[in-house]
Design a protein around this nucleic acid. Structure first.
Lengths: 339, 339
DNA sequence: GGATTCTTTGCAACCGGTTGCAAAACGACG
DNA sequence: CGTCGTTTTGCAACCGGTTGCAAAGAATCC
């Protein structure tokens, strides 16, 4: 049923090599042979088997796209851009959905090797650097997107500076005159949470008169944010919260509204990510925007370069974030509560 | 660098066939040879090249997952479940992100053939049946998930009965005593929109005293819903709207709130899908739930069966939907406006 | 027209596996 | 111990391509 090189060669009356060469860029074929081959191929509906050719060329044009963030709305955009970006460059994404509890890279690395992916992209803000490093050790060119910055990187990392983002959030709250602020983080063991907390606290350390507290939600999810904020509201809530990410923020926002309080009137909230829904006017979340498109573009470029030169020195590319002003933080000009 | 069958054979002191057989289910190998091979393989860190073996076995365990709905929040859940489900059954999803304007199946079909996928799943509520049919004609076992029901199916379809859903929406609005209702559809050419409109109007036809109108948003998106509803509000809005899907609904909801109106007080809204965000308490959208998990489970089962028996007669599996009662429709017991 | 160079072509080996087949090894039995 | 049936094993061909090499053919030059 499937038509092969041999069939085309027979029909065109040429050797198999001739057919192969017609379909490989820059090979030497005379216009005449090429025409004969193309005609035969057309009539037979032939297209070369990419997998078979990968055997000899050593390239499958398959890129493993590995993530454990399949429930975070931001990742809808992430997957859209990754798949589109890879396709545009002639590559195919082989998706790996990592179970939340699977922190051992061995199984997925073996799988990627079995399918001879040319390279892999680990798209996760929660996996530790060691994960991608294991891929590299297994001989897979890899880029960790949305990963953690490291001063001695073993692996390519593309993302944002979470510490700087935390600091930015802190400064934003300070600038708006909040006197009692808090960090509502994601899971404590997530690297992104740790870094964001670090930066946030660092910013606040410069203003000792401002009261600051920290708590953690059990996951980067709406429910976790809502539960945690509900708990906080029953105690002695801060005036403004920097939430670990946008879904968490919306959960917290919902809890505030359910408690009959208003946002930003009673409590301010700033998130991080700028997922699609943050811009919905009936959510209208003030947040810090991650430049997703740039991160993904750079990740793809980097993985391609690394496939070409596997010994390439590990590189870290961090993109700047910026505050997206919406409606869950008291405006900057409002100085009523400023000291 | 990569370790092959031959290396293991050499190290274990056996033939290449022996190694191959050790790694193929149900082949005849003595316990002794198996032990020797496994030891050697372990020490070398060998794992068989799935692509090379696919050449002779004719199976890649690759399943093409094709979609053009990468921006619909429901599909975050869809991709999560598909990838997980395929992986659990030992299959690998090869993702194809179809540009919105690419309605010609030829390019993607060729691509899937080049990678010798065992089968494909077209996950889209907007593509016409002809799309998946073209895959089948190209010799690719295919299932159309979230596709359109047809009385003479050329291809496997798994999804919901959109006409029935439209009717269900109509009946729900009638039961709550709305006297002027409307359908706010997605793009008019999307099969799902057409069917939902059909069912909705059919339900209303039985109640000629109820006024009904129809309009279409330019896309299944928040903005499109918001824009369209804003327009409607400036004219002479209905009492309740059945929106083409949930994102559209939230857009419409937002427009209602921005106009200073309340929902369900002034205007009722019912959506379709029950995406994650519909359940967020600060959205709290009444909607019709699509049983996504069942649809995806059935799709995977069906594609596997079809790979095993390509001549299998095309089958349609539709799953029932149900109304999820939340806060954007006047409650059932409220009969103030009933006739 | 012949020598020289460049291009095009087919042969055959190879990529990393699988598998039909026949020979070898094994075990059971009389 | 010889015979027979059953595993187990290796050989070699094959899956669908690519590619180095040498021979054939075309083009160029004198």
């Amino acid at each position: 049923m499937p038509v092969t090189l041999k069939d085309v060669a027979a029909k065109a009356g040429v050797s198999r090599s001739a057919v192969s060469r017609t379909f490989t860029e820059g090979a030497s074929v005379s216009p005449l042979t090429r025409a004969k081959v193309e005609k035969a191929a057309d009539e037979l509906g032939y297209s070369p088997n990419a997998l078979a050719s990968s055997l000899t060329t050593g390239r499958t044009k398959l890129i493993g796209l590995v993530s454990n963030n399949f429930t975070n709305p931001l990742f809808l955009e992430v997957f859209d851009r990754f798949t589109r970006g890879l396709q545009d460059r002639g590559l195919r994404p082989l998706l790996v959905n990592l179970p939340k509890d699977e922190t051992d890279p061995a199984t997925s690395a073996r799988m990627l090797r079995q399918y001879s992916v040319d390279g892999a992209i680990v798209a996760s803000s929660t996996l530790p650097p060691s994960f991608a490093e294991a891929y590299r050790a297994a001989g897979i060119p890899v880029v960790h997107s949305f990963g953690r910055f490291s001063t001695a990187p073993q692996v390519h990392v593309v993302g944002i500076d979470n510490v700087a983002c935390g600091r930015m959030a802190g400064e934003t709250l300070i600038a708006r005159g909040y006197r009692r602020v808090a960090f509502l983080g994601g899971p404590e063991q997530a690297t992104s949470t740790q870094d964001r907390a670090l930066g946030f606290l660092a910013a606040l350390r410069e203003r000792p008169e401002i009261e600051v507290s920290v708590s953690y939600a059990s996951a980067y999810s709406f429910d976790a944010g809502r539960v945690e904020m509900t708990k906080l509201l029953m105690q002695d809530p801060a005036q403004a919260y920097f939430c670990g990410d946008d879904v968490l923020s919306v959960g917290a926002l919902s809890a505030v509204q359910e408690a009959g309080l208003s946002c930003p009137g009673d409590i301010g909230i700033i998130g991080l990510n700028d997922m699609q829904m943050a811009g919905w006017q009936n959510i209208n979340l003030t947040t810090i925007r991650q430049p997703v498109a740039e991160i993904i573009g750079a990740s793809i470029d980097l993985v391609i370069d690394t496939v070409a030169d596997p010994k390439r020195h590990p590189e870290t590319r961090l993109f700047p974030c910026r505050v997206v002003e919406r409606g869950t933080l008291r405006p900057l000009t409002d100085r009523r509560n400023a000291r």
